[in-house]
């Protein structure tokens, strides 16, 4: 096989098995693929430095890479994505996942709130503590246990919160502080009876890694 292998062979790259790179031989006997790969991997080779065929092959690649660098530099930034965000969120709002329906107010009442809405309030409450960022927040109806909860069961709910904390946070006290915030938010912002709040610290990270104030 000489320098001009079938130029179309590369475009029929349908399967990996047909993909045997670098078989093409330069007149000096080196495989083009090997020469380029050495260059890419930064390996020195006395032959390629002096061989005119290898030099020519590397020159071609160099020209290509030069154009590639310019293409990257010339590319306009794609910052005007506002319309894209709106289109995505329009679809998302038609496919909301409200989660379970949970009791609001006293046991005898017939008011309810969806889990996703209550969880947002509890996450924000926990996030208000310095050095705390909340991830998962699940809320289960009373006495649901492991079994599937009865639809629309009244009674105090069980809250499970996962938090990431800054290394500066006192790990002994933080769980209790989060519990207090969640109980306070449940009563003051929602009017929801909470039976228990389980707090799991999933990660301790450098203080700088926690975004100021969080997303909300």
């Amino acid at each position: 096989m000489a320098m001009n292998a079938d130029p179309n062979s590369g475009s029929t790259d349908a399967t990996d098995s047909a993909d045997v790179p670098g078989e093409e031989l330069l007149p000096c006997g080196r495989k083009l693929g090997d020469v380029w790969r050495q260059w890419e991997d930064g390996l020195a080779d006395p032959h390629t430095r002096t061989c005119p065929h290898c030099s020519a092959a590397l020159h071609d690649l160099d020209r290509l890479q030069d154009v590639v660098r310019r293409a990257r530099a010339e590319e306009p930034p794609q910052e005007d994505t506002g319309a894209l965000v709106d289109r995505v969120m329009d679809v998302v709002r038609l496919e909301l996942r409200p989660g379970r329906t949970l009791p609001l107010g006293a046991s005898a009442e017939d008011d309810w709130i969806v889990e996703a809405a209550a969880a947002k309030v509890f996450r924000a409450a926990a996030d208000s503590l310095p050095g705390v960022r909340t991830g998962s927040c699940r809320i289960a109806p009373a006495g649901s246990g492991a079994a599937a909860p009865a639809r629309r069961a009244r009674g105090p709910v069980a809250v499970r919160v996962e938090i990431v904390v800054a290394a500066t946070v006192n790990l002994q006290r933080i769980a209790e502080q989060v519990r207090e915030e969640v109980f306070a938010a449940a009563d003051g912002l929602l009017g929801m009876e909470v039976g228990s709040v389980d707090v799991t610290v999933t990660d301790v990270v450098p203080e700088d890694d926690l975004a100021e104030g969080g997303p909300r």
């Binding site: 709002r93 909301l96 996942r97 996703a116 969880a119 996450r123 998962s136 927040c137 997303p215 909300r216």
Partner: peptide, 10 residues
């Protein structure tokens, strides 16, 4: 994690 639990704002 929030979005997976239905928080569309996240």
């Amino acid at each position: 994690a929030r979005a997976g639990e239905g928080d569309e704002e996240a």
